[in-house]
Amino acid sequence: MHELSIVAGLFETLSAQARENRAARITGVTLRIGRLSGVVPELLESAFDMYKKGTIAEAAKLTVEVVPLRVRCRACGAERGVESYVFLCAACASPDLEILQGTEMILERIELESDDA
């Protein structure tokens, strides 16, 4: 249950972004969360809703895009998705795999509103 401490860090970035862009409100937040990131999207959403009260993102809608795990074999170059956490190349059985995506935890974009015309 480290989702709350991740969300606390997220809100530091959000308020910095709002200041930088002279925004009055943040209305949308989109995260990209890898399947092997170690956090649970549902728990992130609850933590976000709990944390946002009284902040500049009080009315923000959170969107979590879950990123599937994909690897590339360094031996034969084959690329594929990983469903069952078997980290061996399905084509040549090499264990030398590069993780292309699926471990990230990224604040992708935010939607801001400002009061000036």
Partner: peptide, 15 residues
């Protein structure tokens, strides 16, 4: 009222 989209691409565990 103006709205804008900002692409941030910040690692949540970056700090």
């Amino acid at each position: 009222m103006a709205t804008k989209d900002v692409i941030v691409l910040a690692d949540l565990l970056g700090t």
